[in-house]
Amino acid sequence: MQRGWFARRSPAERVAMDEMNDAWVKCNGCQQILFARDFERNLKVCPRCGHHHRLSARERIALLADPDTFVERDAEVVSADPLGFPEYADKLNKGRANSGLPEAMVSGTCTLSGIPIVLAVADFAFMGGSMGSAVGEKVARAMEYALEQRLPIVTCSTSGGARMQEGLLSLMQMAKTCAAAARLHEAGIPFVSVLTDPTMAGVLASYASVGDVVIAEPGALIGFAGQRVAQQAQVVKPPPNFQTAEFQLEHGMVDIVVPRKELKHTLYRVLRFFTGG
């Protein structure tokens, strides 16, 4: 990962960079102190334990899109506060400041190793990547654009689930995004869903699970119920790898678990199967 491999840095990234000015970072997996430059070069994957740290939407796009090919769409679609929900306006402001993004989802078009695609990427720094009306709208529009242009679509999710602060309207985004996915399905437009840490609840139980191919990053937390709810409900003791990418792979819910450094090439190979030949 070269310096300046993405043009705009969000405040969250800048804070991270400031820490890295000290040239050292601590791995969230093994707690080892790492040389920041090695960590960045290794795509924020710990060179010692392989822990995959979260990427921002911009970093993820830089990882997957060919240089200078990403053209953002629907950037104007942002959240409102339809319920007048307590503290929501503040949380939206914090989300914007934290992520440097207007919304928890960035979508657009690009080429991936030369293949033109629609790409929609979530950002966890914006309210935990949660799906409210605006995120649902952006996913649906991205899918509709893919259908209209007959382009394959790749989504990268990182989300705690539906956004509580928009109540029932957030819940309905699950149906809305799956409605758009249904049209892709019928039209035979390839849809590849990449699950990154974490992909939970209302996002996993909607569009993220209905990709033609579902790819997950190693160690990513992937599950339906939040850990707290799941713990309370346990009659059966959860295995040590409960709700990880590897657990989901083992239980047949994920097609491939792919290390980050191979993600782009794997996507290329999958997309080429659908579009090439």
Partner: peptide
């Protein structure tokens, strides 16, 4: 929906997601 280990193991999220996609159509 049931949040337990068994439901997670058998793909509760996938089951719900598939219903959403199929019911629309």
């Amino acid at each position: 929906a049931d949040p337990g280990v068994e439901s997670e193991s058998r793909g509760i999220s996938e089951a719900i997601a598939r219903n959403l996609r199929e019911m629309i159509a």
